[in-house]
């Protein structure tokens, strides 16, 4: 088991390197010249050359990449010019808020999705199945930002159940209850699409499994139908549901961008959009790399969970 985890972690190294290459290349494509941006359009050619030398921009592209990578490995992601603060500090702070939001949404969509899909499959073509199928269709068709806005109108403005936006109350204690009331709506809005996708997949995975011989064996043993569905069939179906949970985690993590904007959540998505609009390139780079790395790591967790679930792949 330990060996498997180690191998999986090791295989993430090239993926992470690839991600840095892609991000670096995308950013290198940016039109415009940093030296002119710093010095203004009346800069003399000598001064431009000097700045380029100081910034290392006269080096070949591959050396620039290695220097950049080396700096990052030492924790130096550069300085955000708009915020005038180290990129890493800002990213880490914002990423915490995103993790709270996306983590909650992920737990929600995984639980609700698998449960809804299982109920749907167990009652195939019945009322519950039709209701869930329709809800799922609605869920995967509604833009999360629109859903969030409608939730604000209904639950915050009209019913006053939850605060309109933000992560913490402006006045008052920053305790768990305050966080929960601020978190409920955005987490739900963020979870809806992924819930739909997971429910859909769980339903078909379960239907596939329910035809298998070992289900008949469980029934022939006299196992109650409830256990046949929720223990035997679901466990076997999880083998194909888990990888999709991994993919959906990526959707939730990056879909948080919209929700953070709608609900004024101080997360990394909102930071990225602001940084893009301000052309704060180093901040964009840092943010993208940290989120992508987190996603890669999460997929390793999914793989390990998969191997715990299925003893046949643990070799």
């Amino acid at each position: 088991m330990g060996g498997y985890i180690a191998r999986r972690l090791l295989s993430a190294v090239p993926v992470l390197l690839g991600i840095t290459v892609i991000v670096f290349l995308i950013m290198a494509l940016i039109p415009g010249d940093p030296a002119t941006a710093i010095l203004g359009s009346y800069a003399t050619p000598e001064n431009v050359a000097r700045i380029n030398r100081e910034l290392g921009l006269d080096e070949p592209l591959w050396r620039q990449y290695l220097i950049w990578l080396g700096n990052m490995l030492q924790g130096d992601f550069g300085q955000s010019f708009a915020l005038n603060r180290p990129v890493l500090d800002e990213v880490v702070e914002r990423f915490g808020a995103t993790l709270i939001l996306a983590g909650t949404a992920f737990v929600l969509c995984a639980l609700l999705g698998v449960i809804a899909g299982t109920i749907s499959a167990a009652n195939q073509y019945g009322f519950a199945d039709k209701a869930i199928t329709f809800a799922v269709l609605l869920g995967i068709s509604i833009p999360s930002f629109f859903l969030g806005m409608m939730m604000i109108l209904l639950f915050a403005v009209r019913l006053r159940w939850f605060p309109v936006s933000g992560m913490w109350p402006i006045y008052g204690a920053r305790d768990a209850a305050a966080l929960f009331s601020h978190l409920a709506m955005p987490a739900l809005a963020l979870a809806v699409v992924a819930t739909g996708v997971i429910a859909r997949l769980s339903r078909s995975a379960l239907l596939e499994v329910l035809r298998q011989d070992f289900i008949r064996t469980a029934r022939a043993k006299g196992v109650h139908e409830r256990s046949v569905i929720w223990r035997h069939a679901l466990r076997a179906a999880m083998v194909s549901i888990l990888p999709v949970l991994g993919i959906q985690a990526g959707f939730v993590l990056s879909g948080a961008v919209y929700i953070e904007i709608v609900f004024q959540w101080p997360g990394i998505g909102r930071m990225l959009v602001d940084a893009i609009l301000r052309r704060d390139i180093l901040l964009v780079q840092g943010g993208v790399i940290v989120v992508a790395a987190c996603y890669v790591f999460f997929n390793i967790v999914v793989d390990v969970a998969q191997s715990l679930l299925d003893p046949r792949i643990r070799t």
């Binding site: 993926v15 995308i26 990056s254 961008v257 990225l272 390139i281 992508a292 996603y295």
Partner: peptide, 23 residues
């Protein structure tokens, strides 16, 4: 290469591309 791109959370990659090309 395709696997590498798929290792990105989707919308994030789109954001990075828009960041490079401009809105």
């Amino acid at each position: 290469g395709v696997d590498m791109l798929m290792a990105f959370p989707y919308i994030l990659l789109a954001l990075a591309i828009v960041a490079a090309l401009g809105p």
